[in-house]
């Protein structure tokens, strides 16, 4: 019993760590983007200020489902983050960090947010949710095919298991071992993070920030926390799957920073797709590459 409570405490620590890490990382990357545009940019802790400001404001609420959805969203994401390994040894629930938990438990959070947004009664929110779900359908399929290839190769769906398989030298880092799959995963990750060109569901000038249109104050603050933790989960998932995980926290931070910064830089020079372009894009080349990669790796056994 005590052990389980310890683990849960540990898990909450991981979630907090993820929140702090990604919020700082977000600020730093805003700074980097600003420097590229010859600006000074915000303080590195700007995102913390934003979130705490939102939490301090007096919000408006559209009824119980509006609040309940937000709680479910943040709760689901915190729960997911609690399973996330940071290094191969720092993991709250050892042996239970199954890949599918991350994909499906995250969906509870998404569902909560979608529910709450639709509950606000604003049509733009529903349109945003529609676009978010459609984008999800697009990026998730190629990504899952690549990950299934990895699971088939390593023989485990445990995230630390996959990371350890890369560290012990059974496989190269999967970004090298499965180069095509890596390209696909990068594109899918852009979609997951909602970076340009796949940020169709936010589209502030078009549908007034989509699902978030009716939020202000603490609900928006909680959704921002949720968003930061979601990004933490997705980027660390990528680090563990393709960059060989991490032996130490320092390595984890370095890899995390590189992945996030590179994606940020790429997204800063791109425009925005229309929603049907997102779908056709993902179902054309990324899916094709993912299938080719899976064929090569599973049936021919060619893994670099």
């Amino acid at each position: 019993m005590i052990e389980i409570l310890m683990n849960i405490g540990f898990g909450l620590g991981v979630a907090t760590f993820g929140f702090v890490l990604q919020t700082a990382m977000g600020g730093i990357n805003r700074k980097i983007a600003a420097r590229l545009q010859k600006r000074r940019g915000p303080k590195w802790y700007q995102e913390f200020i934003d979130i705490f400001k939102l939490l301090s404001k007096r919000a408006t609420s559209h009824g119980w489902i509006f609040d309940f959805g937000v709680i479910m969203a943040l709760g689901g994401i915190i729960g997911t983050a609690m399973f996330m390994p940071i290094t191969s040894s720092i993991v709250a629930f050892e042996g239970y960090d199954n890949f599918f938990i991350f994909v499906y438990l995250i969906a509870v959070g998404m569902l909560g947010m979608a529910m709450s947004a639709s509950g606000s009664g604003n049509p733009l929110a529903s349109i945003g949710v529609m676009r978010a779900l459609t984008t999800m359908l697009a990026y998730e399929v190629p990504f899952m095919v690549v990950v299934m290839t990895i699971i088939k190769l390593t023989g485990t769906s445990s995230l630390t298991g996959i990371a350890v398989a890369q560290q012990t030298g059974d496989f190269n880092w999967f970004m090298i071992a499965l180069p095509l799959g890596f390209i696909v995963a990068v594109m899918s990750l852009m979609g997951m993070l909602g970076k340009k060109p796949f940020e169709t569901y936010i589209a502030p000038a078009e549908i007034a920030s989509g699902p978030m249109v009716e939020y202000g104050g603490k609900q928006l603050g909680m959704l921002f926390i949720m968003h930061e933790i979601t990004i933490f989960i997705e980027v660390s998932l990528f680090v563990h799957l393709f960059l060989g995980g991490a032996e130490t926290i320092i390595m984890f931070l370095i890899k995390y920073f590189i992945v996030y910064a590179v994606l940020n830089l790429v997204s800063n020079v791109l425009g925005r797709f229309k929603i049907d372009q997102v779908v056709t894009f993902f179902f054309k080349w990324p899916l094709f590459f993912a299938v080719v990669q899976a064929m090569i790796a599973i049936h021919l056994g060619w893994v670099i």
């Binding site: 600003a34 000074r40 940019g41 920030s209 249109v213």
Partner: peptide, 22 residues
């Protein structure tokens, strides 16, 4: 907003809807 005066250094930024804005 852009590089000449850069209001982001004050922590300011544009928002989409009145609910989110200060």
């Amino acid at each position: 907003m852009t590089s000449a005066y850069d209001m982001e250094r004050l922590g300011m930024g544009p928002m989409a809807t009145p609910r989110q804005a200060d």
